[in-house]
Amino acid sequence: MVWARGLRKSYGDLEAVRGIDLDVRPGEAFGFLGPNGAGKSSTMRMIAAVSPPSAGELMILSMDPTTHGPQIRARLGVCPQDDTLDNELNVRDNLMVYGSYFGMRKAEVAARADELLDFVQLRDKAKGKVEDLSGGMKRRLTIARSLINDPDLMLLDEPTTGLDPQARHLLWDRLFRLKARGVTLVLTTHYMDEAEQLCDRLVVMDGGEIVAAGSPLELIRAHSTREVAELRFGVGDNEQNAELVADLAPRVEVLPDRLLLYTDDGEATLAQVHERGLAPMAVLVRRSTLEDVFLRLTGRTLVE
């Protein structure tokens, strides 16, 4: 669906994407995980056949975006990070106008618009103003709009950024359904839980490069331990205590507010901590997540 080798994008002296390789397969959900400024959105705009690559090779749906942009875009569904809905049109007319750009006949768009409003649960808002919709509803309408042409490949740039938890879950549910219908999803996110929930495979991006690739589970296995013991000492005491527990786990990370001990048995490690007479204010044993993978690979947390 998407194939890239040595793909680059620069803006003047700034290199946003520094030579990445991609292989997105039909029917999968593929994610770009990384902090703001990692080059995710620049990559997405190139895959959307809008932004021309600065160097490297890129094929989308087996076509070259520099020569077949309109043909590629005819089969894509794009849900951009920033809202591009038309506030002066009502909810349904946003879909009607957008469908016309794809050369669809009016009756065809109308039928599809009603179907999609049902799908994103906005049927009762069809005649309503876009301005009056909540953030989650707007995002769902944008998704409905991007599906108007029944795309083979859907691009979602940070689909749930800025949404409340309930709205996120509703949106994830719709994306699962799309995937079940065989639509290939490519999405960017800086939420590790979103990446774990939605993506079959993902790449971790940092500073314009891919620093790791694989399924969420593979990445966690390859770059982290099974469990993590989190210790919270008082403010300023974390670093000092880190030295006292350094030998209890193969890897210890010091964050401003807590210590992370990477270990295969969190409870056992915790017991050893207590044996040493240390009394953290709070403790937590959890499974490793993509956040830990990211911390390991880049030395930084995802959401700062």
Partner: peptide, 14 residues
């Protein structure tokens, strides 16, 4: 403001 052009460029329109 409305960013309508961005929505248009995501469609087959050039």
């Amino acid at each position: 403001w409305s960013r309508t052009y961005y929505a248009m460029t995501a469609s087959p329109l050039a």
